[in-house]
Amino acid sequence: MRSRAYPFYFASGALALYLLFYVIPSIMGFYYAFTDWNSYTTEVNFIGLENFRVIFTSGASQNYMHFVRNTIVFTIATILLKTIIALGLAVLLTHGIHRLAYFHRVVMYLPAVLPMLVVSLVFKSILNPATGLLNTTLRSVGLDFMAQRWLVDVAWAMPSVIGVDTWRGVGYIMVILIAGLQAIPREYYEAAAIDGASGWASFRRITLPLLLPVLTVTTVLNLLYGLKVFDIVFVLTNGGPGRATDTVYTAIFDEFSKGRYGVATTLSTLLFLIMIVLGYFVIRLMHRDVEE
């Protein structure tokens, strides 16, 4: 490691840009979290932990902890759903179905190619309680009791958003897992089959352990994606009904558009800390499993 092929200053140009556009703004962001920066005056005053106090002791309409909770619920639910469904599909399309496997993979991956805005607008129409495709279909086959007010019912809005996001994101995770599955040598399965291992046993003893590094990657990707979710919520429900599906980033957007930049920056700082802590622990946890 000591003998470098190139002198350090070769990296300095990139380093300068990195400092200018990533490190310095981030540090400035931390600073602004402790100020009353807003759109109404040009003055920026240091106000200590006041913004954090606002966030942790907020009232019924601006319940920031509720937004944090929503974000975490969304993140955990989408991680579990996407990983389980994508793993199932990946195994199915690698070891199960061979006819037209590539075609199926493309079809499953397709939603990931669509812009989130398009997906959201399409689903907004599909999930309309009165005129939407989903409820119309359910009613036409006599399943009226299953027709819900998907996006406007407090109880159903979050599950609906999670469902739409899973539909869109599962193909992407599946493709990564397929790549991981194909890297597992076939000999292991042949050896296991000779030893009389069942399909479930070889999945549990071979596939899962060897896929763990890939699963770590997808989990971290899903985690970071889930924590910073914005567009799908913004278009599907705009945080509604009321504020039932507001997440941290829709709240940040809200605060920014109200001109309360200080509070908005505090929220994003807080989310940044949560991301770092959770990301670190997820990687540590899964790496330890690999080493064992």
């Binding site: 009232g59 019924a60 309409s61 601006q62 019912d153 407090v154 945080g239 509604g240 009904p241 009321g242 504020r243 039932a244 109200k258 309360r260």
Partner: peptide, 29 residues
Amino acid sequence: DIGKDMVAMFTGAMTPEEVLVSIDQRRAD
């Protein structure tokens, strides 16, 4: 924002009084 609070009121997450308190809060801000 009042609109969002009123939807929260319709769906039972806020009371009429809370909607008004929330209006007062934003006015003060």
